[in-house]
């Protein structure tokens, strides 16, 4: 799939934002006064920017409100509702905390739960797609939530927890990649099922020499060689480097560096998340099976 910057920004930023808000809801970071204000601002800022950037992906952002109508069936619609509900609940929680100095724990827990459910809903936009076997797996929501929690904890300054989570998440991501690599083949969709023309079939001529929406959007390909290299870099930058930095004697500079590294790595991982995702429509466009 085409790794659209708006979607990478959306998933990375909203994940981090909701992760941080969840931590705030659970009281894993200071919620009051200036520090609280800064944390909440950061959380809402990240989540809000993420959500807004998702609209950049829309052909008609001015109609974005219509996306709230189909919550009964559509994960995107559910995500929209959940994001709003989350922002509302978390907003109330934050307002009480910051303005009135009142920390209403159950409200915080509700906000935290909503945050994680929202991230889960975001991930289900991708995870529900049978057409993209790499995504169509429980590991997709698990990792999204994992990233949100880890990022949140990291932002919240929970050094030890963050280091542990980083390690766990790194391993999980590694395993997920490995498993994902086999999923297209395992999905049962092949050029033979796509065409009904038997096993020894290949694309001879594409339907058009010009591009189209599908070739631009879905038939994106990263060379296997590049992907492996990028994955290694991502593992180092997103997990190993920040974990090591956190294990060093604490300083704000190092912690900030850890956050920056993790976020940079996460951007790369999300880039790979899209770029490596093979859509079965590629079978009609001569893309070799994974």
């Amino acid at each position: 799939m085409h790794p659209a910057p708006s979607l990478i920004a959306f998933t990375v930023l909203s994940g981090l934002g909701f992760g941080l808000l969840a931590c705030l809801g659970l009281g894993l970071a200071p919620t009051e006064r200036w520090t609280g204000t800064v944390f909440f601002a950061l959380g809402f800022g990240l989540a809000g920017t993420g959500l807004l950037s998702s609209t950049l992906h829309l052909g008609h952002p001015e109609r974005a409100l219509k996306a709230f109508t189909q919550w009964r069936t559509s994960w995107l619609s559910r995500e929209a509702w959940l994001a709003c509900a989350t922002l509302a609940v978390a907003g109330l929680y934050a307002a009480l905390a910051v303005l009135a100095g009142l920390t209403v724990a159950p409200l915080g827990w509700l906000a935290a739960a909503l945050c994680l459910v929202t991230v889960g809903a975001t991930s289900m936009i991708y995870g529900q797609l049978r057409t993209v076997p790499r995504w169509h797996h429980w590991s997709t929501p698990a990792l999204f939530v994992g990233f949100a929690v880890t990022g949140g904890i990291l932002l919240a300054g929970q050094v030890t927890a963050a280091a542990v989570l980083l390690a766990l998440l790194g391993v999980a991501q590694f395993l997920a990649w490995r498993a994902g690599d086999r999923r297209l083949a395992a999905s049962g969709s092949t050029v033979a099922t796509a065409t009904g023309l038997g096993p020894r079939v290949r694309l001879f001529e594409p339907p058009h020499t010009g591009g189209n929406y599908l070739t631009h959007e879905m038939v994106f390909q990263v060379a296997r060689r590049h992907a492996t290299k990028l994955r290694s870099i991502a593992l180092v930058v997103a997990f190993i480097a920040p974990a090591v930095l956190l294990m060093l004697p604490f300083s704000h500079a190092l912690a900030a560096a850890a956050v920056v590294a993790h976020v940079a790595g996460m951007v790369l991982i999300r880039w790979l998340f899209f770029a490596e995702a093979e859509h079965v429509v590629g079978l009609y466009y001569g893309r070799p099976v994974g």
């Binding site: 052909g59 008609h60 219509k66 993209v132 079965v280 429509v281």
Partner: peptide
């Protein structure tokens, strides 16, 4: 007139049967 051009339906279609209009930006 209801389409926001999110592209999700095209992603969900295994057959590549949906294309977003490059000018009008609707599905």
């Amino acid at each position: 007139s209801d389409c926001i051009g999110c592209g999700l339906c095209a992603w969900a279609c295994p057959y590549g049967a949906r294309e977003q209009d490059p000018v009008e930006k609707v599905m």
